[in-house]
């Protein structure tokens, strides 16, 4: 058995050579900043929202300057979930043991109230639920939200690739959650429906499927 004092190390030529080589190769690096990624993300989201509105149009109640409470509730929930998830994604690029980024779980739990409430109301109003499930606008909601989510995911994935995410699956889930929330937030500006069943089903599907896609696809893009 070999005993070492705290500061004593056995000679290790290979390790010394590696450290010498790394030190000789060191070049200045700019610490990874979150702000440029945030700016690109906000710009992309705005462009997507403007294009969507130019194509599909603004909600009638917004045109009239009298937003419906459901629109405001969706806006608030999706904006909070999106912002908290984006912050968690950016933090994943700067690892650190003990850094807590659990806020997204609370936001996601709150957002789950929409699909839960929608499901309860669907049980009470099955005919309305069937009509909402068969709505052509629902598929449009899903398509537009997911397309915007994919666009928003690009700067987040690039940010993670420049960083050092140590939990790639969580990072992927968060990218999907953030992208899905922001995509649904953009579509919400057009969406003419105010039904809780519709919101719970189609918005829940958009955010949920984006999160699942992120969890499945992103880890292989950011693993190092």
């Amino acid at each position: 058995m070999t005993e070492l004092s705290p500061n004593q190390q056995l000679p290790n030529p290979a390790l010394d050579a590696l450290m010498d080589r790394l030190a000789a190769d060191v070049a200045p690096v700019q610490p990874l900043e979150d702000r440029p990624t945030m700016l690109v993300l906000v710009t992309l989201l705005l462009v997507a929202a403007v294009l969507m509105l130019a194509w599909l149009g603004l909600r009638p109640d917004l045109m009239a300057g009298q937003p419906h409470p459901m629109f405001l509730l969706r806006c608030g929930t999706l904006a909070v979930l999106g912002l908290v998830s984006v912050a968690a994604v950016l933090a994943q690029a700067h690892p650190g043991v003990g850094r807590s980024n659990a806020g997204w779980k609370v936001a996601a739990a709150m957002a789950l109230l929409f699909p839960l409430s929608g499901a309860i109301m669907a049980l009470d109003q099955p005919e309305h639920a069937m009509a909402m499930a068969g709505s052509a606008s629902g598929w449009e909601c899903l398509r537009m939200s997911l397309a915007t989510a994919a666009l928003c995911a690009v700067p987040m994935v690039l940010h993670l690739r420049r960083g050092a995410p140590v939990a790639p699956h969580r990072a992927g889930l968060l990218v999907g959650l953030a992208g899905g929330s922001l995509g649904a937030l953009a579509y919400n500006l057009h969406c003419p429906y105010d039904s809780m069943v519709y919101t719970g089903l189609w918005y829940g599907l958009a955010v949920g499927s984006a999160a699942v896609a992120g969890r499945l696809v992103v880890p292989r893009l950011v693993r190092w």
Partner: peptide
């Protein structure tokens, strides 16, 4: 691990402690 530190050194934020970053890597 030292190679990973070298390759990912830009991911350390100077405003945050170093050892938790090293421990995570």
């Amino acid at each position: 691990t030292l190679l990973a530190v070298h390759q990912r050194r830009a991911s350390w934020d100077p405003a945050r402690p170093f050892l938790p970053w090293l421990a995570a890597i």
